[in-house]
């Protein structure tokens, strides 16, 4: 390998986020080429609005993937949280929101107990919990509700309102959350432990860490973030039906992987996931613009994830 190639590889290794941002810009450029003038302030505003629920959902996923796990119940939790929030809306907005968030925390805690205390494989545990949540939600909807509930105005404003014409309201929730997560992962003991557990569970135990405590708290946090994402999403689409967030399960994992977090745990960042979520949203926008049929969209979606994952193993030596 020539020196230039080596140094390029090194740049990619150390600053993979730069490459991801370049990819994002390239996609935006593609849209501008296809339809000149399309990339403007309101387009950016739209992208951010649609990326926010995915970004928040993928935040929880990032936390879990860093520990070497995966949470396949995030979409079910988001859906359930939004639905229960909406069904509780007649009793007051505060109660509705608390109820929705509580769904997330409770399911997250159950996931955490299963994974951390009973040592069930995260994939199995969260897949099963996802089914339990969806089933329970169906029973609940048949027993308690007469019609699909409406979304309260506050939530609607949170999900689709804008400030100063272009700044989505959801950004005021997502941005502080992002800052908190990025700093928290880097600079708190809890963040350190997530990476440590994902890297080597046994070594972390030997250093005196009670791993179950960390994992339990982490799955609960993931559940809470999923619930928040569900509420925001219900505001964006102004509805809370029984399949609200189902389509976001795979993108939540994809955003994490595209963002450079190792699926085997131990390394990664939320800033990468944010860019990953933006890339997926912009990609969706490109494909919509090209009027690509849904089936082809899914093929391209899958292909891009595979290519990026392969690139990571090659270049970054994620093993």
């Amino acid at each position: 390998m020539s020196v230039r190639v080596v140094s390029a590889v090194r740049l990619v290794q150390q600053r993979s986020i730069v490459v991801l941002i370049a990819l994002l810009v390239a996609l935006a450029g593609l849209i501008e080429i296809i339809r000149p003038g399309a990339v403007n302030a309101s387009w950016v505003s739209n992208i951010l609005e649609f990326a926010a629920p995915l970004g928040i959902l993928a935040a929880g996923q990032t936390l879990v993937v860093i520990t070497g796990g995966i949470d396949l119940s995030v979409a079910n939790v988001a859906t359930a949280a939004a639905y229960i929030m909406a069904s509780q809306a007649p009793y007051g907005v505060t109660r509705a929101i608390v109820a929705g968030l509580l769904v997330g925390v409770v399911v997250g805690l159950v996931n955490g107990v299963g994974v951390a205390v009973f040592r069930v494989q995260p994939l199995i545990m969260t897949l099963a919990m996802g089914l339990v949540v969806t089933g329970s939600l169906n029973v609940y909807s048949q027993a308690a509700i007469r019609s699909v509930p409406g979304v309260p105005a506050v939530i609607h404003a949170l999900g689709s309102g804008t400030v100063l014409g272009y700044v989505p309201v959801s950004l005021f929730l997502w941005a502080p959350l992002a800052v908190l997560l990025i700093l928290g992962l880097r600079g708190t003991g809890f963040g350190r432990l997530l990476y440590a557990l994902g890297d080597n569970l046994e070594a972390t135990r030997l250093a005196g860490v009670r791993a179950w405590q960390v994992l339990l708290a982490n799955y609960a946090a993931c559940g809470l973030l999923s619930a928040v994402a569900g509420l925001v999403l219900s505001g964006t689409v102004n509805a809370a039906d029984l399949s609200l967030a189902t389509v976001l399960l795979l993108p939540s994992v994809a955003a994490v992987v595209i963002g450079g977090t190792s699926i085997f745990g131990g390394s990664g960042s939320y800033s990468g996931t944010i860019v990953g979520a933006l890339i997926l949203t912009v990609l969706n926008s490109v494909l919509t613009l090209l009027d690509v049929p849904d089936a082809v969209k899914q093929v391209l979606y899958g292909a891009i994830i595979v290519i990026l994952a392969a690139a990571y193993t090659r270049v970054l030596g994620h093993d």
Binding site: Y195, A196, G266
Partner: peptide
Amino acid sequence: ALLRQRSVRENIALPLV
């Protein structure tokens, strides 16, 4: 005993958290 992907510093500081 070690976190292979993590830095020397994080490895040494692990008991502190």
